[in-house]
Every structure is written in C-alpha cells, then in structure tokens.
C-alpha cells in the first residue's frame, strides 16, 4: 500500500496510547498486518538512525513515540509531570505482583515479611496494579495483578518482557559485595 509508512507515522503522532498492529489494521484496513509490521519496523530504525529527540518503542502490546531519556531534564522544564517516583518498598511490592501474579496480599506480605496494605492501596490508585477478583479460599481474599499502565510506565512490551530476575546478584557466595 502506498504511503503506508506515513499514514502509520501520522497515527502514531496523534494517538494517546500505544497503537497495536491490530488497531492500526482496523484503521488502515486495506493494508496487511505484515505490511504494517514492516512499516513500523522501518519507522523505528529510521528514528534510530536519525538519533533525534524521540524513538519508537514497543510497549504494552503496541507502538508509541517516546522522547529519548537523554532529554528528560529539558522536558521537565517544559511540563511538570506528576512525579511517579516509587519508594523502594513500593517497587518491591510491585515486583512481587509483576512476577507472581495473580497473587493475594498475604503471599506478597509473606515475601516482604512486612505489611503492605498502604502500598497496595497506592499502587491501585496509580493504576499500576488491579484487582483481578477473589480467590476461592477461606476469607475470599482479593487477587492482584499488574495493569496495562504498568507495562506502559515501565516500557515493557508485555509481561514476558519482564527482565529475568538476576540470580541473587546482591549476596552471592562467589562475590560478596563490600559495602559497609
């Protein structure tokens, strides 16, 4: 199809969320998925070669134009984003949910050895975590999982894209870290 790359580029510029190949396909229905995929890859490598202010990232099952991290400080002068900084405790809780989902609160707390009600609430509020339902065990506890927003914020294609947790890098028997 003619101009397919330009069409997709224009869609990417306007879209307010990552565009999946299917979504693009439903808009540009004359094109084949393969064509769309190729065009996206071409765009990605064009942006890469140009090495400009933004790149094309595959996140949350779609594609999105994002600014390069090198220019974050400048952007923060332009807009004041709501800080998304998560505390160490929040990150740990999120990591547990991400890797072990679906998971109930009790199991999360078991791993961290500490209550995490407040943190869970905050993660739910920020839509990084969602309630999937209830587990059919006594007490019918809520079951938690991560959201699409989580994938978007952490620049992950999907859940399989989560980095493999490193083998106890911190305290391996081979090389103990010398940090007082």
């Amino acid at each position: 199809m003619e101009h397919i790359k330009n069409i997709i580029e224009s869609l990417l510029l306007v879209a307010d969320e990552p565009l999946s190949v299917d979504r693009i396909n439903s808009i540009v229905d004359q094109a084949e998925k393969k064509e769309i995929k190729n065009a996206l890859e071409e765009l990605a490598s064009e942006y890469e070669n140009r090495n400009g202010g933004f790149f094309l990232r595959e996140v949350a099952g779609g594609y999105q134009i994002r600014t390069r991290p090198e220019y974050r400080e400048w952007i923060k002068r332009l807009i004041q984003p709501k800080p998304i900084r998560l505390s160490k405790a929040a990150l740990e809780t999120l990591a547990i949910i991400a890797y072990k989902q679906p998971i109930i609160r009790n199991d999360i707390e078991h791993i961290r050895g500490v209550n995490c009600g407040g943190i869970l609430h905050m993660l739910l509020e920020r839509k990084l975590v969602r309630v999937l339902g209830r587990k059919a065990i006594p007490g019918r506890p809520l079951v938690y999982a991560t959201t699409k927003q989580f994938l978007e914020v952490f620049e992950l294609k999907n859940l399989e894209d989560l980095p493999t947790p490193g083998e106890i890098s911190e305290l391996g028997d081979s090389a103990p870290e010398n940090k007082a």
Binding site: D16, T67, R72, I75, F154, E155
Partner: peptide, 12 residues
C-alpha cells in the same frame, strides 16, 4: 528502566 513520565515522555 526508562520510566514513562520520568525519563521518557509521550505527546498526549
């Protein structure tokens, strides 16, 4: 990672 809204930004 490059966190959205912290390291990397989107248009809308």
């Amino acid at each position: 990672r490059n966190l959205l809204g912290e390291d990397t930004f989107v248009r809308n």
